[in-house]
Amino acid sequence: MRVILLTGSHPRHLYVVNKLAELGLVAAHVMEVREAFVPQPPANLEKMDHINFIRHFADRDEAEQRHFEGHERVHIEIPTLNVTLTQLNSEETIKWIASQSFDIAISYGVHKLSNELLDVLPKHSWNIHGGLSPWYKGNTTLFWPFFMLRPNWAGMTIHRLSARLDAGDIVHQSVPNLDYGDRIHDVACKAVVQVTKDLTRILTTTSLEQVEYHPQKGNGKLWVSNDWMPQQLRFVYNQYNNDIVDQFLDGKIPRIDPPIISALRNEE
Score class of each variant (00 low, 15 high):
Arg60Asp: 13
Asp119His: 12
Ser262His: 12
Ile4Asp: 03
Pro145Glu: 01
Arg55Leu: 10
Asn18Asp: 10
Leu23Tyr: 07
Val17Ser: 07
Leu199Pro: 13
Leu199Arg: 09
His10Asn: 15
Thr206Tyr: 07
Tyr15Gln: 04
Gly8Lys: 06
Ala21Arg: 06
Pro259Met: 11
Asp179Gly: 08
Gly218Phe: 09
Trp228Val: 10
Ser107Arg: 03
Asp103Trp: 03
Pro151Phe: 07
Ser262Asp: 09
Val120Ala: 03
Arg265Glu: 09
Thr93Ile: 10
Lys19Glu: 13
Ser174Asp: 08
Leu85Gln: 15
Asp182Met: 01
Ser225Pro: 11
Lys252Asp: 13
Lys190Gly: 00
Gln65Val: 13
Leu165Phe: 14
Thr86Tyr: 12
Pro176Ser: 11
Leu199Glu: 01
Ser107Thr: 13
Gln232His: 15
Val83Cys: 05
Tyr15Met: 06
Gln239Val: 10
Glu212Trp: 12
Trp153Met: 00
Lys137Asp: 08
Lys217Ile: 10
Asp59Glu: 10
Thr80Asn: 03
Ala167Arg: 14
Asn266Arg: 15
Ile97Trp: 11
Ile4Tyr: 05
Arg164His: 13
Pro151Leu: 04
Arg12Met: 03
Ile184Arg: 07
Ser225Arg: 15
Ala21Glu: 00
Glu46Met: 04
Val33Arg: 10
Pro42Gly: 02
Leu113Ile: 11
Asp166Ala: 04
Asn89Cys: 08
Val211Gln: 15
His71Pro: 02
Ile158His: 00
Asn82Ile: 01
Ala163Trp: 07
Asn127Met: 05
Asp119Thr: 14
Lys112Leu: 15
Pro79Gln: 06
His56Arg: 01
Phe147Arg: 14
Leu121Tyr: 04
Gln239Ile: 14
Cys189Thr: 04
Leu165Pro: 01
Ile253Arg: 08
Ile51Ser: 12
His10Tyr: 15
Pro151Ser: 00
Ile253Ser: 07
Leu14Pro: 03
Pro258Asn: 14
Gly251Val: 01
Val245Ile: 11
Leu264Lys: 07
Val224Asn: 12
Val110Gly: 08
Lys137Asn: 02
Thr205Asn: 08
Ser162Lys: 13
Ser99Tyr: 14
Lys137Cys: 04
Leu14Gln: 10
Asn152Leu: 03
Ser9Asn: 01
Ala27Leu: 03
His67Ser: 14
Asn82Val: 06
Pro230Phe: 07
Leu117Phe: 05
Leu25Gln: 13
Ile51Ala: 08
Asn219Gly: 15
Thr200Gln: 14
Gln239His: 11
Asn266Met: 03
Phe146Val: 04
Arg2Pro: 01
Ser107Gly: 06
Glu32Phe: 12
Met156Ile: 09
Leu45Thr: 03
Lys112Arg: 12
Gln65Leu: 07
Gly138Pro: 02
Arg164Tyr: 10
Leu142Thr: 15
Phe147Tyr: 15
Val120Pro: 04
